[in-house]
Amino acid sequence: MDLRTLRYFIAVLEAGSLSRAAGTLYIAQPALTAQIKKLEAELGAQLFDRSHAGVTPTPAGLQLYEDARRLLSDADAVRERIQRLPQGPEGSVTVAVPFLLASLLLGPVLAELKASHPRIRVFVLDDLSLMVKKAMLDRRADVGILVDTPQVEGLACRPLAREAIFACGFDRDGSVAPRLRAGRRGKARLAPRPEIDFADAARLPLVLQSRRFAIRQRVEEAAATLGVALNLAHEHDSARVIRSLYVCGAGFTFTPACALSDNPPAGEGWIAARVVRPALQRSYAIATPADRAPDPAAQVVARALVRQAARLIAEGRWEAELLAEVEPEA
């Protein structure tokens, strides 16, 4: 039983004749008769009494007539409501993002999506880079931003951006400033960042997170390559504790460019110097499950992440190199 068959049934009842109803519906009478017989078979009830004068409804036919009119009216109302809805993808999308990048990137992205695609609901998991990768592999997130992992089995990864890592802290006694040298002028900066050799940065009193964190791992690798020891003053897993320590002048830390906006303003001895020789860098990739194509809502969210990254970089609010191709807005 479908809506078309119900419309045929109503037309026959209201016309009182199969031949007249067939003319109104622009179908052959044998085909209409077959549809009515099929409907009677599906319902297990006779719907019409037939005579040479036409057809009259049985009690079952009268009951179906009332119910069918309500059903068709409800179907029309559903169609109208759906057609009045805003067009575009809808659904829920979970995004997993490293917490250092989340504060820079996610606010503008969520605000943009709320305005442009109100039928898409975005849930955010911000965590350690290792946990972001795990969330993607465990299928707890639909779109993720991975750190320093250009390829992962089970995930489709596309390059997003690459940024430098900086040595940051208060130079209270002025002993660090002589170790700095002028840096390269960035595309969108009024003044270039100073630079510091990794070996000099490693000798500073350092406040770092433990070795399970991606930045600490990168620092350890560089130190091992150069054969220098890290001057570790404080080690804590909490990013808030680390920030509290270097902001109060207890030491220096290594910070990716995306987190520079959270640092104190320049002045009063505050230093944020790009680490060179070797340059410490951090790369990001947009990841989605490899075994299925992202649904339309997830595609919209992934494109919004890329567009916002490109915007931040172009405006100089994120000192990074864009690696992704920016797709035009649909």
Rank of each mutant, 00 (worst) to 15 (best):
Asp126Ser: 11
Ala266Ser: 14
Ala115Met: 10
Ala31Asn: 13
Leu208Gln: 07
Leu85Ala: 13
Ala68His: 08
Ser244Ile: 00
Ile271Lys: 01
Ala223Asn: 00
Glu325Trp: 11
Asn263Arg: 14
Lys38Arg: 14
Ala60Gln: 13
Ser244Tyr: 09
Gly144Glu: 04
Pro264Tyr: 09
Glu325Ile: 11
Asp148Phe: 13
Ala266His: 13
Tyr284Ile: 10
Ala273Tyr: 03
Val228Lys: 01
Arg303Gly: 08
Ala201Trp: 00
Val122Lys: 06
Lys187Trp: 08
Gly154Ser: 06
Ala167Asn: 07
Ala285Met: 00
Tyr284Asn: 11
Phe170Cys: 09
Ala285Arg: 01
Arg277Phe: 10
Gly16Ala: 11
Ala45Asp: 04
Asp197Glu: 12
Val78Trp: 04
Arg84Thr: 06
Ala222Glu: 05
Ser210Glu: 12
Ala34Val: 06
Leu101Asn: 02
Leu305Ser: 05
His117Thr: 09
Tyr8Gly: 02
Ala77Gln: 05
Lys133Cys: 06
Ala229Val: 00
Val301Arg: 01
Ala28Phe: 06
Asp148Cys: 14
Ser244Leu: 08
Gly169Lys: 12
Arg240Tyr: 14
Val241Leu: 10
Ala320Gly: 10
Trp318Ile: 05
Val143Gly: 09
Arg307Cys: 04
Arg7Lys: 10
Ala214Val: 15
Phe123Trp: 09
Val143Trp: 07
Arg140His: 15
Lys37Asn: 15
Ser238Phe: 07
Pro30Trp: 10
Arg292Asp: 02
Ile120Cys: 03
Val275Lys: 06
Pro192Val: 04
Ile145Glu: 07
Leu62Arg: 14
Asp237Ile: 00
Gln87Ser: 14
Ser92Trp: 02
Val152Gly: 12
Ser261Gln: 14
Ser210Thr: 08
Leu232Ala: 01
Pro278Trp: 12
Val219Thr: 04
Gly316Met: 04
Val55Ile: 03
Val147Asp: 13
Ile120Val: 11
Glu329Tyr: 02
Met1Phe: 09
Ala182Ser: 13
Gln299His: 05
Leu130Pro: 00
Glu153Trp: 11
Ile313Val: 08
Phe48Tyr: 06
Trp318Phe: 07
Arg140Asp: 15
Tyr284Trp: 11
Glu40Gln: 12
Ile82Phe: 07
Leu322Trp: 04
Ser244Val: 01
Gly88Glu: 01
Leu155Glu: 03
Ala177Lys: 09
Gly227Asp: 10
Asp138Arg: 13
Leu43Trp: 08
Glu153Met: 10
Gln35Met: 08
Pro264Met: 06
Val12Arg: 06
Cys168His: 02
Phe166Met: 06
Arg179Ile: 00
Ser51Arg: 12
Gln281Ala: 14
Gly44Arg: 09
Pro159Cys: 05
Leu190Gln: 12
Ala202Gln: 01
Pro118Lys: 01
Leu43Thr: 04
Ala96Lys: 01
Ile10Tyr: 04
Ala239Lys: 08
Leu101Thr: 02
Ser73Gly: 13
Arg277Met: 11
Ala164Glu: 15
Leu71Asn: 01
Pro89Met: 05
Arg240His: 14
Gln35Thr: 14
